[in-house]
Amino acid sequence: MSKRKQRREDFDFAAGEVLLIDKPYEWTSFDVVNKVRYAVKVKKVGHAGTLDPLATGLLILCTGKMTKQIQYIQAEEKEYVGQMVIGETRPSVDMETEVDSTTDYSHITEEDVRKLLPEFTGLIQQIPPAHSAVKVGGKRAYNAAREGKEIKIDPREVEIKELEILHIDFPTIDFRMVCSKGTYVRSFVRDFGEKLGVGAYMSGLRRTRIGEHKLTDAYALDKFIEMIKQEQ
């Protein structure tokens, strides 16, 4: 999809389109799919890689025959900018749940943060968060987590190709990451906080790129829906 397409008549949703959408905060990826499906009036609409409700940014939707491309888009590397807060933990490792532990972080320095980056760059073993959509025994992990049940999730190998600190204003750390399919940024934040010895949770996340598809080329969801409805 290109921003050159400014009218509904420029699209052929039944034949197939790849749509770049800026997912709003607190929307699930399926909420966006359903909203777009209703607007474009095509049944065959799917997303190429989910985003957590509390994350924003690039969500790629495919319609019609372009849904065959979903598996290929999903396999491409992802880029995120995120923010973590150190010295506190939350069960979900994001803002979904309340703080459950607090640790003094006053001894942590910027050097302590930056010297950990090599440990989290390259091929690493990572355990997905309990509050995630990963399946354990055929069931979504987050269902068990929200019921307070303990579950065992096996580690998986992922690749963090690029990792940089953008800004530090303790207890907040802003970062940028380029990673492979299957990487959980919340797991990175959780593990990073543990390595610092003070814990951490993710206070914000925005996906900025999937492969060659960039957030700067995406439509705000409300603007896209408005454009489509105006042409009906």
Rank of each mutant, 00 (worst) to 15 (best):
D94K: 11
K3I: 11
D112Q: 08
R176S: 15
F11N: 04
K135Q: 14
E79I: 06
L123G: 00
E88Y: 14
K41G: 04
H213T: 00
L59N: 01
W27V: 00
A75K: 13
D222L: 05
V189K: 00
H213E: 12
G64I: 09
E88A: 14
I21L: 06
H131G: 03
T102W: 05
G82H: 09
K5E: 06
Q74N: 07
K78F: 12
A48L: 08
D154M: 12
G16N: 07
I127F: 11
F170E: 01
I151C: 08
A141G: 09
V18Q: 09
P155H: 07
E231L: 01
E9C: 05
L117F: 07
Y201Q: 06
V18R: 11
Q83K: 14
L59Q: 02
R176M: 05
F30V: 07
L166R: 13
Q232C: 03
K5T: 08
R140L: 10
A145S: 13
R186F: 11
V42E: 14
K181N: 05
V178A: 12
Y201L: 06
N143V: 13
I210T: 15
M84F: 13
T97F: 04
E157Q: 14
K152E: 15
K181F: 10
H131I: 02
A14G: 00
G46R: 06
L166P: 06
M95E: 07
L116S: 12
I124W: 13
K195L: 04
F120P: 07
I160W: 11
V18W: 03
S180L: 11
K65F: 04
V185H: 04
A130S: 15
Y38E: 13
V93K: 00
D191Q: 04
R114T: 12
K152Y: 10
Y105K: 05
A218L: 08
V93Y: 15
I73G: 01
V178I: 14
A14Q: 12
